[in-house]
Design a protein around this nucleic acid. Structure first.
Length: 360
DNA sequence: TAGACGTGGGT
DNA sequence: TACCCAAGTCT
């Protein structure tokens, strides 16, 4: 029987010396539940590098959960643009408003888990990190670390309950938040998916997979399905110095984001906005989690009042408020504004984004 | 319950 | 290029 206390102690000792400095981490003292929650939601399926600037921007605009709760939907969606998984932004606002109305964050895993956008992982993370509760935090890093530590060969996701059980055995009563972050840091920097740096691992001697020489092969996963290819068309229509945009419906892909009118991606059709000669500006390829999209970008002058969406003055339009797919489309169709970059508003400069790759 | 849901970076 | 991956949640 392995000594779980030794593993926890070694990890915490390692964490005390090697913890990464991150904007949402408080060196000592009690973490702010609002900042813990915000960072954890942003970090769902998203890299630390991508989250940093968004976290700074959000906490600067909205220092407390009450400030965020009072923000307009469109502004929050615009600030989230580019980060992906937009249901998170919609749930973020719903959660902020619920929390603000109840006067603050619940301090238990159960209470937190009842809020929108907070699932098993995030509720445990906030309870442990912000409130010092001995909850077991299991994310992708922890699954990997634990599957190797105990050489669990059952493929994910079937192995999940067993990994949670083992992780629970490891979680200490003292410093559960630091322990959780230590596990995640270990997974992110040493116990990596490929080429794990076992040589510098603080719990090398405890690792069953290392002993068997199969660390890099774990966790095992079921083969994934092929990604279908889909096609669509987007219209970028101008009326003088205005451009036609719309807010997408809350449900479904890119729900609630600012966008240009487009067809569906599954063969469904849509009438082009009333326009004359639509010019073919090329195709942008965009890879989603579950399909690849080739989107034909058409651009032209509108000849009648659009039936849907609204015309936005170009000077008030910031591509940074668009999701990545629509930024790519815009980069193909945007008019030459004949202005030096430095003369453009700061809001447009920020996160202007790289032009989308354009297949031949 | 398995599929929907973004994006960018690493190999 | 192509594939994998990242501090998951919702339905």
């Amino acid at each position: 029987m392995r000594d779980f206390g030794v593993i926890g102690a070694r990890l915490l000792h390692w964490y005390d010396r090697h913890a990464r400095s991150l904007p949402w981490r408080v060196p000592q003292g009690q973490a702010d539940p609002y900042r813990v929650w915000l960072s954890e939601v942003m970090l769902q399926q998203t890299t630390v590098a991508a989250v940093k600037s968004y976290f700074q921007r959000f906490t600067s605009l909205w220092p407390t959960v009450h400030d965020l709760a009072a923000a307009p939907d469109a502004q929050v969606m615009g600030e989230w643009a580019g980060l992906g998984y937009y249901a998170r932004a919609r749930n973020l606002l719903a959660c902020a408003r619920a929390v603000s109305a109840m006067g603050g964050f619940p301090d238990t895993r159960e209470g937190l888990g009842a809020l929108p956008g907070i699932g098993p992982y995030t509720s445990a993370a906030i309870a442990a990190i912000a409130f010092g509760r001995a909850e077991t935090v299991v994310d992708g890093n922890v699954e990997r670390v634990v599957s190797r530590l105990f050489a669990v060969e059952t493929p994910l996701p079937a192995a999940k309950p067993e990994l949670v059980r083992l992780a629970t055995l490891l979680t200490p009563d003292q410093r559960p938040g630091d322990f959780a972050q230590a596990m995640m840091d270990l997974g992110a920097t040493i116990c990596t998916p490929r080429s794990p740096a076992c040589g510098i691992c603080p719990i090398l001697d405890e690792c069953a997979a290392r002993a068997q020489g199969i660390a890099a092969d774990l966790p095992r996963k079921l083969p994934k399905k092929a990604k279908p290819q889909r096609f669509g068309t987007v219209w970028i229509g101008f009326a003088g110095d205005r451009v036609l945009v719309e807010t997408r419906p809350d449900k479904g892909l890119l729900g609630g984001t600012l966008a240009f009118p487009s067809t569906g991606w599954d063969g469904s059709d849509m009438e082009a906005p009333a326009g004359g000669d639509w010019r073919d500006m090329g195709v942008v390829r965009h890879v989603f989690t579950h399909f690849t999209l080739d989107l034909t970008v058409l651009s032209g002058q509108l000849t009648a009042n659009p039936e849907r969406g609204n015309l936005l003055a170009l000077r008030e339009f910031s591509p940074s408020a668009l999701p990545g797919l629509m930024r790519k489309a815009w980069s193909l169709a945007k008019p030459d504004l004949a202005q030096p970059e430095t003369a453009r508003p700061a809001a447009t400069m920020r996160r202007a984004g790289k032009p989308g790759k354009n297949p031949p």
